[in-house]
Design a protein around this nucleic acid. Structure first.
Length: 473
DNA sequence: ATGTCC
């Protein structure tokens, strides 16, 4: 494959064949080599560049790896006028995302209580593939959640005003409950406030390093402060939405499917009823994911009040990793309305952008970037170069290196938990298999991913957190 | 990611 280095950490695959634009890889040489070794990631981003209406270039971020049709860690902006929406460019777990809560506790307050903390959180937050959520809702409530996201949660007494203000899109996109299939609703009604499985986790962390004092202060982060990171998504509901709409698109556009280099790229032209319905359902599933992370926030508040007598547990920010959004971006010197597909990518708007909450507007949007289990996580700030280079986006995590199957062969849950325990990290998991799948060795080096984001100026380092206790599915 | 196969 033809690949040229444009500048440090920027590579371009020139436009050729079916491509309607070039493709770009934002990675260091070692991270690029990992994508090349995997084999298909760069082919996927080249396929994405063939989408109708693609703007500038399709791109993959430093944590990129193989996904369904589109790579995870990929961004594709298409014209809002004559572009398309492709569910594979958003992912099965619609609005999978991360939030960080800060507490008024220091590490010393929690030290010695890790075991009871991890047990309490595990008891309060249903996790793994089972049923049940922290917040009980009926079908009418669910429609409210699908329509209004965290706004509904606030009205029902499950969110504080600052929880709305400190959330991407204030926790609400324009969702259409009627576009969400009944099967998806049936799954979702039991899962408001449930963690899920795989790489989802709820982790108590301490702020170990501050790289940018002013921004950390604006975000309410201080060295040795205790924070909680929640990584989860739209559970069975989002999965069912994605699956049902992929099927509907395949039936609606059979000739298209046959003509694609990969049927997983199936899409619908914006403006078609199928596309409008999918976007309404996707937004509703995004609202559900926000309500889900919000419900778990309430569980965390209950645990901290019980164990430490504090309810000063405030949302720093909440970001989506898997969603498409209509945004305005400069392309060829003009402002254009585009639909930005982000799949395993974080919006990273720079200081001054109008869509950043007032409290953070002078320093840039918080970017929450989890590492792998037992390693550290980061808070970054949206960087000045992100609008120019990556449609206002940066990486979303360490990025998987080994398949789940391979990780299960290579690691043993007991050994991992024991080793992490010796490092002061308490891991409680529903499933040993999940622990093995999520072994740190199955992931790329999060420090290297963050280094590249920082060097590119798309998301710059603010703080690094070390884990204390981790609840997994 | 996912009632990991309606």
């Amino acid at each position: 494959m033809d690949l040229t280095e444009l500048t440090e950490n920027v590579y371009e695959i020139p436009q050729e064949g079916e491509m309607r634009a070039p493709a770009r890889v934002f990675a260091s040489e070692p991270l690029l080599r990992k994508m090349q070794e995997e084999g298909r990631t760069l082919g996927q981003i080249r396929n994405v560049a063939a989408l109708p209406g693609i703007q500038k270039y399709s791109l993959v971020l430093p944590d990129g790896h193989l996904g369904y049709g589109f790579p995870i860690g990929g961004v594709a902006a298409v014209s809002a006028e004559d572009g398309v929406v492709s569910p594979g460019g958003i992912g099965f777990d619609i609005n999978c995302g991360v939030r960080v809560l800060r507490t008024d506790l220091d590490y010393a307050d929690v030290e010695g209580h890790e075991q009871e903390l991890v047990e309490r959180l595990y008891d309060l937050v249903p996790c793994g593939l089972g049923k049940g959520g922290y917040v009980d809702v009926d079908r009418e409530d669910l429609d409210g959640i699908l329509e209004d996201g965290i706004e509904w949660m606030a009205q029902a007494g499950h969110a504080r005003p600052a929880d709305l203000a400190h959330c991407e899109e204030e926790g609400r996109l324009d969702g259409d409950p009627d576009a969400v299939p009944d099967d998806a609703k049936r799954r979702g009604v039991k899962q408001v406030g449930s963690l899920g499985s795989g790489n989802h986790f709820l982790e108590v962390q301490r702020v170990a390093d501050i790289y940018d004092d002013e921004t950390a202060e604006a975000y309410g982060l201080r060295e040795d402060g205790v924070v909680v990171m929640i990584h989860s998504g739209s559970r069975g509901l989002g999965h069912q939405v994605c699956q049902d709409y992929i099927r509907r698109f395949e039936k609606t556009y059979p000739d298209l499917v046959d003509s694609l280099p990969d049927r997983q790229l199936v899409y619908a032209p914006l403006g078609d009823q199928a596309a409008e319905d999918y976007l309404g359902a996707m937004n509703a599933a995004a609202n559900f994911a926000w309500a889900n992370r919000q419900a778990m926030t309430q569980a965390v508040r209950e645990a901290f009040l019980d164990l430490f007598g504090t309810d000063d547990v405030e949302l720093v920010y909440d970001v989506c990793h898997n969603v498409a959004k209509e945004e305005t971006h400069e392309v060829d010197g003009e402002q254009r309305e585009v639909l930005v597909h982000r799949k395993g990518a974080t919006r990273a708007f720079p200081a001054g952008h109008p869509e950043i909450p007032g409290a953070y507007r002078d320093v840039g949007q918080p970017v929450l970037l989890p590492g792998s289990m037992g390693t550290h996580s980061y808070v970054l700030a949206g960087g000045e170069r992100s609008m120019d280079l990556t449609f206002g986006s940066t990486a979303h995590g360490a990025g998987r290196l080994k398949s789940r199957t391979q990780a299960k062969k290579d690691y043993e849950a007991g050994d991992l938990q024991q080793r992490l325990r010796s490092e002061g990290v308490y891991v409680k998991a529903r499933s040993g298999e999940t622990v093995a799948e999520e072994a740190p060795g199955a992931y790329k080096d999060v420090d290297e991913v963050v280094r590249v984001s920082d060097a590119l100026g798309i998301g710059t380092k603010v703080a690094r957190m070390r884990p204390i206790a981790n609840v997994k599915g």
